[in-house]
Amino acid sequence: MADNAKQTSADDFTPIAGADRAKLDDEKIATPSLTFLQDSWRRLRKNKAAMIALVLLIILFILAFFSFIFETHNPNATNPNLANLPPKIPGIDINGFNGTIEQSGERINAYAQAHAGNHFYILGTDYLGRDLFSRILYGTRISLEIALIASFFDLAFGVVYGITSGWIGGRVDTLMQRIIEIMLSIPNLVVMVLLILVLKPGMTAIILSIAITSWINMARLVRAQTLELKNQEFILAARTLGESSWKIAFKHLLPNLSSVIIINLMFTIPTAIFFEAFLSYIGIGISAPQASLGTLINDGQKNFQFLPYQMWYPAIVLSVLMIAFNILGDGLRDALDPKSRE
């Protein structure tokens, strides 16, 4: 080190003057600075599973909501002559997709047997000859609609309830928590069943019953987080500056609640989808002839031994939907809450 010093010239030992000084740029920051959202998005993008889930969901959304473009047949049109036909995709000759089916140990061409002519059904038909593919698309749409509606109630009711309870505190909070406690002591499904029985099974009844039960978790989490944030310095600062209580709640509190809200939303959605499928499955949900993934699975299950595709396809779509939402939810939780991983 001492040798090192000798090579330098005497000129080096003059103090740095004004112009050079400026170049030193004493607060240079090499780490790229990211906003919270950018940072979360970066973490989410790094999560391959979550990105695949996101893409899958986008595809399912497009397929389901534009099903009138993609559906190959009218989902509700029955055709008893062409009932229980296995999947057939022209040009593909793999068992399971070529319109053949095993019957008493032999593989037979079900389409020829039914004199289907040029008709083909890529996922086969059900016991009334309805096109399974179109019905699955329709059922997916029902599931996604339910998902959106449940999210809406989560946000509109759960978040407001939680913030109100936590922000006002005191007696109001105690009362609101008692109500939640009572609701929590009745299994959700029982509440739904009672409501559906009163309202007559159907889409409206399902939506209402899911709406009434789905917001509770959100309300609890939002309240807990509100209580935690309420006493933090930035809220106190806003108070000291004389901002109105509700303005603080929306301007300062809500953005800080966004992680909790988004994460919980991602877990409300699969729950809602599950309940719709469940209710339809046991026979008090979406009623015939409308299709729901639950009713499709129920129909398919009856013939599972002989026509397994009738249950497999709707079951796979329902499971993929749930898996995708759950993985995306997990990914978002990790991305929005850096503590949880890394």
């Binding site: 330098t8 740095i16 030193l24 004493d26 090499a30």
Partner: peptide
């Protein structure tokens, strides 16, 4: 000022940028 970012530490004396007695050589070695 603040300490330098250690992702890309300065070639010379790390304190130079905050040092009002800094010499030219501080930026080099």
């Amino acid at each position: 000022g603040t300490p330098p970012d250690l992702l890309d530490p300065p070639v010379g004396d790390a304190f130079a940028a905050r040092n009002k007695y800094a010499l030219k050589i501080d930026t080099e070695k």
